[in-house]
């Protein structure tokens, strides 16, 4: 199913949490300059898919390839060092560190491997991130715990960008955000895509998904039940009704 020359390839992975069988054979391919969206309700395996790729919850069967080489069996830090960054669900910023420290963590030599992935798009640094998210510049010396939800989300995205990744895994970046901020997330997603980043976006927000996706997968109980474009999904009322629980004519 997955194209053999893709940047990131997931081939028939099966992932468990202890005894519970979460991902039942999932495959996808992600290419530079593309946004692939995984849509699904809570508990369907979206976050598990991100964790499987990042090596945090390694799949028991199947494999994940990045730039043609196996990620299976690699440590999470090894995977990160190859240029895959995560914007985790619930932001997960370092609350006891300042905004500046949060942003500088990924840039340390200590976090970089010997092999550096080739750069994609613009060079992100502290200045560039603060220009992108001016609300963070105002709070640069505040602790992470003192930020609002929206600011924390911007910080989580900014932190991922600081690593200058080729590939970004985003787990529900719109969760709990005001519509204006969702709009800002959407704009940055489109800009990153135009700069050549490959983005895997896990979402529940159908509007955001339809607006940015090059391809959409709908996940239900650990299996993909739909794969297509935004247009195809908006016309597929069966999938929308049964697996996403949204009324027709969104």
């Amino acid at each position: 199913m997955a194209a053999s020359n893709a940047l990131l390839e997931v081939n028939d992975i099966h992932t468990y949490y202890g005894d519970s069988y979460v991902l039942h054979g999932v495959s996808l391919a992600l290419n530079p300059g593309k946004i692939v969206v995984i849509l699904g309700r809570n508990g369907m395996g979206k976050t598990t898919l991100v964790r499987s790729i990042a090596g945090l919850t390694p799949p028991r069967r199947g494999d994940v390839k990045f730039e043609g080489s196996q990620l299976s069996g690699q440590t999470p830090y090894g995977i990160a060092q190859q240029g895959i960054a995560i914007v985790p669900q619930g932001r997960r910023i370092f609350k006891s560190l300042t905004v500046r420290e949060n942003l500088l963590l990924p840039t340390s030599q200590l976090a970089k491997g010997k092999k550096r992935a080739p750069r994609v798009g613009k060079q992100w640094n502290l200045k560039a991130v603060l220009e992108e998210f001016p609300q963070l510049a105002d709070r640069i010396n505040n602790l992470g715990s003192a930020l609002s939800g929206g600011e924390q989300q911007m910080l989580a995205i900014g932190r991922a960008l600081m690593a200058n990744p080729s590939t970004i895994l985003m787990d529900e970046p719109s969760e709990g955000l005001a519509p204006k901020l969702v709009q800002q997330v959407q704009e940055i997603l489109l800009r990153l895509r135009s700069e050549g980043h490959a983005i895997l976006l896990v979402e529940q927000n159908l509007g955001l998904a339809l607006a940015v996706a090059d391809e959409i997968y709908v996940i239900s109980s650990g299996r993909f039940v739909f794969h297509g474009t935004s247009d195809e999904l908006s016309k597929n009322s069966e999938v929308l009704d049964n697996h996403l629980g949204v009324a027709k004519g969104h």
Binding site: L105, Q109, A111
Partner: peptide
């Protein structure tokens, strides 16, 4: 940067791993 990394580890080990740190 090493001290900062330690404080990051104190705050969240898994997060530091996914930023590329050998905790």
């Amino acid at each position: 940067p090493f001290g900062l990394a330690l404080r990051g580890i104190k705050s969240s080990e898994s997060r530091m791993r996914s930023l590329g740190y050998r905790v």
